[in-house]
Design a protein around this nucleic acid. Structure first.
Lengths: 178, 178
DNA sequence: CCAAAGAATTGAACATTGTTCAATAAAATA
DNA sequence: TATTTTATTGAACAATGTTCAATTCTTTGG
């Protein structure tokens, strides 16, 4: 996946590279979809670990460290990261519990920082704000990677994304009765 | 594409449905990639037209109309809209000029509103802010459609996205020397 | 240590796909 | 009408996801 990307990811090629036959892949994972889900769950796990590492060596500005970490991870693991969003569950299927777990950990890391910064927030509000900030950074990251920003003359997506996050945090800290 | 989505979109099926042979498709479009690009360019064109229509029947809050229009278009044309982002140019290829043109129109519509709201902004700043707001809404829309928000208990993605946009606009109007 | 039961692995077989390209049909031109 | 240009075809090829009876390996019970 890291080498060829989602579009050219193939169960047969995986089998070849790990020295098993195509049949074994299907016995273990059940379908290409589920194999991709397994890969993506692992990627989210790596992502969470990277975020944690970034926070450990972060200075005073931990939010900036998270935003930078987001962009860095996506850029350095483009194919893996994009595969998370290129893949869609077949209609009616639900997220695998493994995936949900890894994603929960990643979001928990961010939420802890938000709560640390804005302890006045109720837990529901903090949760919604966390997911909204992740969505904000996600959007900027997508446009940075797929060339939409470059095409339109936005040269520093990270800086812009961080600005949006700061504004949202400032607004949240001001809007809450003390 | 609207029916089966990007993952199951097939040149052969297109040929069958329009009553031509597979060879003709390839003579006209050159490859599946370019056929998808043609479909996506058309989708962006529809999208721009929808946004314009929304503004025409909008009340005082034109920004809210744009955000609502964004979500509505994506939700009502899920497969078409997602295909825009599911498809990636093969390494080294550039955007088709048709696609760039349609996208430019869509962004122009939004930028006009931003400039109307914040005429103090320099044109470079207005451009960057426009793209950043689009990225913000895009991120919220992706999470709304792919189920990430629902999975995590965010129930009103539109409202949250609009809140982020409002905060960014408020910050921009305050930060610029009058 | 061996034989039988269980588990893991295989790869041929099938349906579909993207892609190519010589052959054919249709249209335009002289 | 004869010729050239353009458009269209679909068989052929390589590659893919998926299935499943046959095979190999492992474990177990005596």
């Amino acid at each position: 996946m890291a080498e060829v990307g989602y579009a050219h990811f193939s169960a047969r090629e995986v089998a070849k590279r790990i020295g098993y036959s195509i049949g074994t892949i299907y016995n273990v994972f059940g379908s290409l979809d589920l194999l991709v889900v397994a890969v993506n769950s692992r990627t989210v796990g790596l992502w969470a670990a990277t975020a944690r590492a970034r926070l450990n060596e972060a200075g005073a500005n931990r939010i900036a460290a998270l935003v930078e970490g987001y962009f860095d991870f996506a850029e350095r693991n483009q194919n893996l990261w994009m595969a998370i969003y290129d893949h869609h569950m077949p209609e009616g299927e639900t997220f695998s519990s493994d995936y949900v777990e890894q994603l929960g950990e990643l979001i928990g890391i961010v939420e802890t920082e938000i709560v640390g910064l804005l302890p006045q927030l109720g837990s529901g509000e903090a949760g919604t704000l966390t997911r909204s900030l992740l969505a904000t950074v996600h959007g900027h990251c997508v446009f940075a990677l797929n060339g939409t920003f470059a095409l339109l003359g936005v040269h520093d997506p990270r800086h812009v994304a961080l600005a949006r996050v700061r504004e949202a945090l400032a607004a949240a800290s001001g809007n809450v009765p003390p």
